[in-house]
């Protein structure tokens, strides 16, 4: 019997050491069409979810923000606008392809000066303690191998009083909506993935990883276990997505 620890990759059980590589392959594959697919898959609603995240971040001029798994830079761009030239935004992503797409996009849109790009693993953030006023991770936590380790790492780099925002797919609160959502995720998404990005397997993984992700209350407990205080969550679009927020004491 193998003594290696395992974790899930979609519905499959894989060695913990292998998950990061498998997730990396998914995002290398989808990076080029990531924005387009997000718009198609969510009908553009992901922009509304991200806008709500920005509102709850309460980020102000001159503050420092770390956007983990920042991908193509949607949140980082908004944060950069708000913090202004005296602030600092770090867009971090473990995946080189996603980071390249995000960096090219933001530089093409004229973002510079207050924006840095760092290839980093959410579990081992390469920043000093108490560095950021706000840490955000949107649609990234479910791909992290050890979520508890990542949450503790995020707590470490937050300044006291700073806030963490986790925007992630979750469990719909209405059973009818859940059924419709299941049908959409497992039939329509892979089909759209094959049609637009030429890759149905990656989108099948996305659907499976969403189902394997902890539900609202479990994730809330994980935030509290990691040491965050005043934790809460808001269900968006009937719980299809949830925004969790916690503070560093």
């Amino acid at each position: 019997m193998s003594d290696k620890r395992t974790t899930h990759f979609g519905y499959r059980e894989v060695d913990e050491d292998a998950k990061a590589g498998l997730v990396a392959n998914v995002f290398h594959s989808v990076a080029g069409r990531y924005d387009l697919m997000n718009d198609l898959m969510s009908g553009g609603i992901h922009r509304i979810w991200k806008r709500f995240t920005i509102e709850l971040s309460a980020v102000r001029t001159g503050q420092s923000v770390l956007d983990i798994a920042g991908g193509t830079g949607d949140l980082a761009a908004k944060f950069a606008d708000i913090v202004g030239p005296t602030g600092r935004v770090v867009l971090a992503d473990i995946n080189e392809s996603m980071l390249n797409v995000g960096r090219d996009k933001l530089l093409d849109h004229g973002y510079q000066g207050n924006l840095e790009f760092v290839q980093a693993d959410a579990q081992y953030l390469p920043f000093p303690d108490d560095s950021f006023d706000c840490v955000s991770i949107a649609f990234g936590l479910r791909n992290v191998t050890d979520k508890a380790l990542a949450l503790r790492s995020m707590l470490r780099v937050l300044k006291p009083g700073g806030r963490l925002l986790v925007l992630e797919f979750s469990k719909p609160v209405n059973p009818l909506l859940e059924k419709a959502y299941d049908g959409y995720s497992f039939r329509v998404l892979p089909f759209m993935g094959r049609l637009v990005a030429g890759d149905s397997d990656s989108y099948q993984y996305l659907a499976e990883s969403i189902r394997m992700h902890p539900d609202q209350d479990t994730l809330l407990g994980m935030l509290e276990d990691a040491g965050f205080v005043n934790c809460e969550y808001h269900n968006l679009t009937g719980g299809v997505v949830a925004l969790h927020r916690g503070f560093k004491a």
């Binding site: 609603i45 922009r47 509304i48 979810w49 806008r51 709500f52 509102e55 808001h234 269900n235 968006l236 679009t237 009937g238």
Partner: peptide, 11 residues
Amino acid sequence: LDPTLTTAALA
């Protein structure tokens, strides 16, 4: 009211 609706209206 779902925050998605109010946020969309405000946007």
